[in-house]
């Protein structure tokens, strides 16, 4: 890496951090400038909602009806296991070699003793499962998250994560990804696996969408804020957590026009 390049990365990192910190601090007290695509996003969000309500959710309910509990657990474990090496690589790229090693050992352990990954015995043996992807890695490296964007079928992403999504989906799932040569050559088998994976994943969160429906005045807004906050937490950890102000301290800080909307205190 040339010094100029390194300087450039440093600069990107600095501006990113200050921007994101500012956005976080401002929270959502004022219309945040982090949703320039809002009209498109809202349209896509409602498209996804409708697709889900008409097609995916009913199918997932059928899937739950026709499969025994234990089979769904096996399916979840199997697809979860395939992801582990990529999770491990990203842990290493993010500077957590011990966690990365844990993830790779999980894969080895579960693929063999866990009968091809259908049993998650690594978790029982105190090797916890993590959740890392390349979008996060870029975030840790200092790449800006960019605007919030709702993708068809995939749902909410930051622009950064959306751009590297093909890399993530390919590396997460070498069995089926059609980028380059998938490990499973037969396309019919691939489709069956893909649908199974999707249905099963949806089945795992059946009922949860009701909570979202019920909790909010503006579902789109709540989902967006939720998504962005959990992404930032994954990248920045505890420093992305909210600062708890006390708005009951009358008089002490009660300016007629608040100068800054959310300086961390």
């Amino acid at each position: 890496m040339t010094p100029a390049c390194r300087r450039a990365i440093q600069t990107i990192k600095k501006t990113t951090l200050s921007t994101v910190t500012l956005l976080l601090a401002v929270g959502c007290a004022n219309a945040p400038p982090d949703d320039p695509l809002e009209p498109y996003n809202r349209a896509m969000f409602s498209f996804n909602e409708k697709t889900d309500a008409l097609l995916v959710e009913p199918a997932a309910k059928v899937w739950v009806k026709v499969t025994p509990n234990v089979l769904r657990t096996w399916v979840s474990n199997f697809f979860g296991n395939i992801r582990d090496p990529w999770i491990g690589i990203n842990n290493i790229l993010q500077g957590n070699p011990a966690d990365g090693l844990n993830d790779i050992m999980r894969f080895v352990f579960n693929s063999t003793l866990g009968i091809g990954g259908i049993l998650d015995i690594a978790s029982e043996a105190q090797m916890p499962k993590h959740d890392k992807d390349f979008g996060q890695t870029l975030g840790v490296w200092g790449v800006k998250e960019g605007p919030y964007v709702v993708l068809p079928f995939f749902g909410p992403r930051t622009m950064r994560d959306a751009i590297v999504l093909p890399i993530d989906t390919t590396a997460e799932n070498p069995l089926m990804a059609s980028f380059r040569t998938p490990l499973i050559q037969d396309s019919a088998t691939r489709y069956v696996l893909m649908v199974t994976k999707g249905l099963n994943a949806r089945a795992n969160v059946l009922g949860l969408e009701r909570t979202l429906d019920e909790a909010t005045l503006d579902k789109y807004r709540y989902a967006r804020d939720f998504y962005l906050q959990q992404r930032r937490y994954k990248v920045f950890g505890d420093s992305a957590l909210p600062q708890y102000e006390n708005f009951d301290d009358d008089g002490e800080t009660n300016p007629p026009t608040p100068p800054s909307t959310g300086e961390k205190r």
């Binding site: 929270g27 909010t216 005045l217 709540y222 804020d225 939720f226 937490y233 708890y244």
Partner: peptide, 22 residues
């Protein structure tokens, strides 16, 4: 208890956006 965090998201402060809009 005055806040619950799910996966690092504050269920309480996450309302600020939509409440503020309203």
């Amino acid at each position: 208890v005055f806040d619950v965090l799910v996966a690092g998201v504050s269920l309480v402060t996450n309302y600020r956006g939509s409440f503020g809009d309203e």
